[in-house]
Write a protein that binds this DNA or RNA. Structure first.
Length: 414
RNA sequence: GGAGACGUGGGUGAGUUGGCUGAAACCACACCCCUGCUAAGGGUGCGUGUCCUAACGGGCACCGAGGGUUCGAAUCCCUCCGUCUCCGCCA
């Protein structure tokens, strides 16, 4: 969540920043008004409560002293009704405020290039030259069919469209990639965690998926549980409502999980193949960082993900997202896009974001800064999306006869 | 899933005839003093959130969560969640 006090004090600046992310200044104006109303409602309530408390104390005293309490009782009863009313007002004011506040995205960093959509993203650098083929490279689904690697039909039969089954060497390669990613991340200092694949609503709100993006999530019927759309949710919320000693920062975590997404808004996009599935594997990095040092951690995470692609011999480019393409929680995001020769284009394979204190405020993740508790910065990034890496290997390592080489670094995992 | 016990601040743990307890004591931690050598003694501070204040300081809320009874609840009642023990079931 954005900082309401900041909006209150620096309204114009806040409005300018959020406009870059497509938020109407009127929405922000409304938010400011609601915040003021809540504070007003609360102080009226608290004044009445203070009065009630002191009268109650008197009440006890009178009784002990054997004084008459008739008059006091009448006053206290009347005030009690007033409190109930004021409480209701405050509750409504709070609900109204949070309905708006929780749906407002994070401020983009000032350094983020302005732009409307992915067309305006800025390529920072390319790593590794795409291989030159002396034949027409196939797309991954054609290769999958030739090698019997992906069973799309049976995936659909078992579940529904946008599910698939990996078979044989493809399944083994998937597992090899997970192990390779986890081992690499661990060597970089990330603690490996194995977390629940379902999280409750409070956690989903902490990282920003709820309440605004409920339609993208699979909910467990009759339970306060959702299938996680990314390991960012459980990893970041490991420290939900906790206060960390400063000496423990940064906390670096990595974990493999499947990710479940309804892909509600992407009907018709990437329907062929397994670029966009309802369930996919991903190894995630999450960092809980000191606010003064989150930029360094961010760079490290980008470099790590890029290094993994390089180790796999996969050409890719590093792209800074423009303001219009930033996700809801992100202040800054760098995507890694891997070269897919079959598709003849770069496709997202990792997305690394610094959310600054946006998630920390929602999830109440703080650290002890001397005597004060301050919000941490949280960062997350894929290292890497497993299924898309598999696709990239298929397309980049294909031979003319349709067979696929295994990258050198993975051989010990197969 | 069934039966019973329990859920207090970083930890241990008082408080359950409702008010003087947001919470004793001890430990841990921080700072200061003393002392000076691998030990100890003394003092002070030490939950979270939020609001008011330039500050000092003060208000409100929180004793698993949410409701209820009451002028007043950590203390009584209800629901839920969790932990432990026994049983059942199982990877």
């Amino acid at each position: 969540m954005i900082d309401l006090k900041y909006i209150e004090k620096n309204f114009d600046e806040a409005a300018a920043k959020l406009k870059k992310k497509g938020v109407d200044p009127q929405t922000l104006e409304k938010l400011k008004t609601l915040f003021g109303q809540l504070k007003e409602a609360n102080s009226a309530l608290e004044a009445a409560q203070a009065e009630q408390n002191s009268m109650s104390k008197l009440f006890g005293q009178y009784k002990r002293e054997g004084k008459d309490i008739g008059e006091l009782k009448a006053k206290v009863d009347a005030n009690k009704e007033r409190i109930a009313q004021l409480q209701e007002n405050a509750r409504k004011a709070e609900a109204a405020l949070y309905e708006v506040a929780l749906a407002i995205p994070n401020f983009p960093d000032d350094s983020v290039p302005e732009g409307k959509d992915e067309e305006d993203n800025v390529e920072l650098r390319k790593v590794l030259e795409p291989r030159v083929f002396d034949f027409e490279p196939l797309e991954h689904w054609a290769l999958a069919e030739k090698n019997g690697w992906i069973d799309f039909e049976r995936g659909v039969k078992l579940a529904k469209s946008r599910f698939s089954v990996l078979r044989g060497d493809a399944a083994r390669l998937e597992r090899a990639l997970i192990n390779f990613f986890l081992d690499t991340n661990r060597e970089k200092g990330f603690e490996e965690l194995c977390v629940p694949f379902m999280n409750n609503a409070q956690m989903l709100q902490g990282t920003g998926q709820l309440p605004k993006f409920e339609d993208d999530l699979f909910k467990i019927e009759g339970e306060d549980l959702y299938l996680i759309p990314t390991a960012e949710v459980p990893l970041t919320n490991m420290y939900n409502d906790e206060i960390l000693p400063e000496s423990e920062l940064p906390v670096l975590m990595t974990g493999y999980t499947p990710c479940f997404r309804k892909e509600a808004g992407s009907a018709g996009r990437d329907t062929r193949g397994m670029i966009r599935q309802h369930q996919f594997d991903k190894v995630e990095m999450v960092a809980i960082a000191h606010p003064d040092r989150s930029d360094d951690v961010f760079e490290m995470m980008v470099q790590n993900a890029s290094d993994i692609l390089t180790a796999l011999g996969l050409p890719h480019r590093v792209v800074e997202l423009c303001t219009g393409d930033l996700g809801f929680s992100a202040a800054r995001t760098i995507d890694l896009e891997v070269w897919l020769p079959g598709q003849n284009k770069y496709r997202e394979i990792s997305s690394i974001s610094n959310t600054r204190d946006f998630q920390a405020r929602r999830a109440k993740i703080r650290f002890k800064d001397g005597k004060k508790n301050k919000l941490v910065h949280t960062l997350n990034g894929s290292a890497l999306a497993v299924g898309r890496t598999l696709i990239a290997i298929m397309e980049n390592y294909q031979n003319e006869d349709g067979s696929i080489e295994i990258p050198e670094v993975l051989k010990k995992y197969m």
